[in-house]
């Protein structure tokens, strides 16, 4: 009888902690503050073009995003906004091989990355009566074979942004030439 009571006490104690854990919450303190890297990020994500024709820049950007395999999700020309996304399979042979080895050695199934969604959010903003700024932010989300979201973050690779803007410069030129 004593043992039963003890077991009961343990179970009740454990169960009473569970709701506390599951309701844990809290927005990080720095989620809505400008960080020391904010300015650097803005510079990385922005290029200035010598034009006042915002519509032309937006249309060239939309064409480029399509060239890159993105689907246009939203656009609002009066505010200079285009949102596009791209889904792709990111199954990596190395990861799959690792999962197979784990399965053989330890008989455990290890999830591997499967789908990636990249979101591109592009905005234009007139700077003065000669120039317009284009800012693009890429974020990506990765789901594994168990459908868990394993990556959910901003892409900060400078090369990606440089490539995009160098292509955009060409695209603007092609649009201007009517090609």
């Amino acid at each position: 009888m004593f043992t039963h009571n003890k077991i009961l006490a343990y179970i009740l104690l454990t169960l009473s902690f569970l709701p506390l854990v599951s309701c844990k919450s809290g927005i990080p303190k720095d989620a809505l503050t400008l960080t020391p890297t904010s300015l650097a990020d803005r510079q990385l994500e922005t290029r200035v073009y010598e034009t006042t024709d915002e519509k032309k820049l937006l249309s060239a950007s939309a064409a480029l995003l399509q060239d890159l395999g993105f689907q246009l999700d939203e656009s609002e020309v009066p505010l200079g906004v285009i949102i596009a996304s791209r889904d792709r399979n990111v199954t990596d042979a190395g990861q799959v091989a690792g999962a197979i080895v784990m399965a053989i050695l330890f008989r455990v199934s290890t999830p591997v990355d499967r789908n990636q969604k990249v979101i591109a959010s592009l905005t234009t903003k007139p700077i003065d009566n000669k120039r317009t700024a284009v800012r693009i932010v890429f974020q990506h989300m990765v789901w594994n074979t168990r459908n868990d979201l394993v990556k959910n973050e901003c892409i900060n690779d400078a090369q990606i942004y440089q490539d995009f803007f160098s292509k955009l410069s060409k695209s603007v030129f092609l649009e201007a030439q009517g090609i």
């Binding site: 809505l32 960080t35 904010s38 803005r42 505010l79 901003c154």
Partner: peptide, 20 residues
């Protein structure tokens, strides 16, 4: 609205929707 977009971007947000 444009300033709000720029502020959100500076804070690390990506814009999902905007309606003038």
């Amino acid at each position: 609205c444009r300033t709000i977009i720029a502020t959100l971007q500076d804070l690390g947000f990506v814009i999902d929707k905007a309606d003038d």
